[in-house]
Design a protein around this nucleic acid. Structure first.
Lengths: 344, 344
DNA sequence: ATGAAAGCGCTAACAG
DNA sequence: CTGTTAGCGCTTTCAT
């Protein structure tokens, strides 16, 4: 039998390493995978050969052989609102950084909610927000791929891992704070309520009012898609209300919108917090740099991002069956300068 | 010889499809890859079997077999300045969207400039900015992986594809405009000059001054890392200058910083553009929503992102050898309301 | 502790 | 037009 001579391909394979190190490819494989059962002498020469040839194992071959993949797919609905504010960037940064640290490959999917994902290949999946892409989620689930949903708490599904921020409580706390300061006419500028985060903040707002027997007024609620443009529009409407009607405080669903509100107030020759108290949401550093530091609800975006990767990582390396995690991360009210006591 | 019975694995393979369709796996492969040489009858039954079994070919097996990969790796230095402003997000959004459309997988690498990339596996690489990671670039080059550099024009390397924005001309045009309005005391708030973009904007600023015989003053230059905090600091220093010294106009390296400058001006009881003319850079939508719409230099971020993917895509499917592309995208001065004529 | 050999799922000559 | 067969590069029993 004739062994066909290998054509001089550019890729150095495990075989080349084995030859150079004078061992079998199996041994090389063992060294690469840090299996303990290799004589120190051999390990050394393999490592040397690896270095000398600048060998990098083919991830494809590895994955084919093992059936495992260390690819984390991050699915973000390519939805307008998602890309406002620094939310998306923080998320990507947090997840990206941790993946890098854990040697996981991060695959980014900006999908339409209805497009079909190519599931094969991903070892695990992170869904950021669920906006009409339940279908994708179900597909992943039924394919048995480890998956965690973030920024959306699945109340009615106890079979799916999720990590979200307790937006309801966060919002409630913010509004409680305003109420404790003596405010009664409190407006709310919402985010895009197709996202659960915005919807929950809205709920928290209502809950706080209710608990304190403050009448909920539709005309105090301004719905937006998180954009600064709509925030400006909203705040102009708000400020334009007749004196007696005009809210004395407003809870805004994001800091970047809150900054816009602040700007509008000032343009109108009014002052924050003298004429309007403002609480934002995010703890976006930009809120610090204004003339009046923004009081806001800090949301642990990076933590959520990191936790999701960690969780997924354990899910992908199933030492033992773990039960489903459903985590609600707490927020923190950060009191700065944009609210005042109402000495009614 | 005994055929070993396959264990009931969860993955449906090409073999299962072939069996169900009553053809060979090769034919199935042909159908999948849309090769024309298949009888319509067979094609139909294969397609049917594929649907019925919900078959998705293993990308790993495909890549192993073909040696090709449709993975695009986007390498972003995990460098503070990179994540300010909406630059990174626009880039990711543009690249992500086009990858999705072209059925390319997007792998995101937030790297330290010195960390070693796992090159194997990527069919092509996009470097966003080159900040001390020349080494990574060289590695990729020597590995023969198609690659394009964006947001950094490699002047001294004609062997590397790059797409950048003509920041020098853009900046120069902005400053020329200011000069044409009668300004002579023109300041500049830079971005982070380790990025070529910021450095070039700074150069363009100087060039415009020189051409018009306006003295370059060190004390008119405020260096920042693109953050709003540093922008605020800079503008406070700027505005704090004695009346006769104080610049009448400022060219700011990013819109988000320009907005900060605007805010500071207003806090000091001054007006834009009455007391200070401002030109930004980016054409960030946020610049539109302020009380005074920001005059700015529009930079084709999305276009740069898209072009890079298109270019890489052709590089990855080498029909014929193409020569190296080195593209400098033009900017566009967008005149709005933040600059005034100086009737000196 | 080590190696031979059998795949992992797919593609690509090569025959027919 | 279709099927056979030999890999792609690595992991993993199973002997030794």
């Amino acid at each position: 039998m004739v062994r066909i001579k290998k054509s001089p391909s550019k890729t150095v394979s495990i075989e080349d390493v084995a030859r150079l190190a004078g061992v079998s490819i199996t041994t090389v494989s063992r060294v690469i995978n840090k299996l303990p059962t290799v004589k120190e002498k051999h390990r050394k020469s393999v490592l040397e050969a690896v270095k000398q040839l600048n060998f990098q194992p083919s991830v494809f071959a590895q994955r084919l052989a093992t059936g495992r993949s260390n690819v984390v797919a991050l699915v973000i609905p390519r939805y307008e609102g998602v890309f406002y504010s620094f939310y998306a960037l923080e998320l990507i940064r947090g997840i990206g950084t941790l993946c890098e640290a854990l040697k996981l490959d991060l695959l980014l999917h900006l999908t339409d909610s209805h497009s079909v994902l190519n599931l094969k290949g991903a070892g695990g999946i992170i869904f950021s927000d669920i906006i009409g892409n339940q279908r994708q989620l179900e597909d992943v689930l039924s394919a048995g791929i480890p998956c965690v949903v973030i920024n959306h708490y699945l109340e009615d599904r106890d079979d799916i891992n999720c990590i979200a921020v307790d937006n309801r409580s966060g919002a409630e706390e913010a509004v409680n704070y305003l109420i404790s300061l003596g405010h009664k006419k409190i407006a709310h500028i919402t985010g895009d309520v197709v996202t659960q985060a915005a919807a929950w903040r809205f709920e928290g707002y209502q809950r706080a009012l209710k608990k304190h027997n403050i009448e909920f007024r539709e005309d105090y609620v301004f719905k937006t898609n998180y954009s600064r443009g709509q925030a400006r529009q909203a705040s102009e409407n708000l400020i334009g209300m007749p004196d007696l009607e005009r809210p004395t405080a407003v809870f805004v669903a994001s800091d970047s919108m809150a900054l816009e509100v602040m700007a509008v107030v000032r343009e109108r020759g009014k002052e924050v917090p003298r004429d309007l108290s403002i609480v934002g949401f995010d703890d976006n550093p930009s809120g610090l740099y204004g003339p009046v530091a923004l009081t806001t609800v800090r949301q642990p975006l990076i933590k959520m991002a990191e936790e999701s990767v960690k969780l997924l990582n354990t899910l992908m390396n199933p030492k033992d069956k773990l039960k489903v995690s459903r985590i609600l991360l707490p927020t923190e009210l950060v009191i700065r300068e944009s609210c005042r006591t109402l000495s009614s």
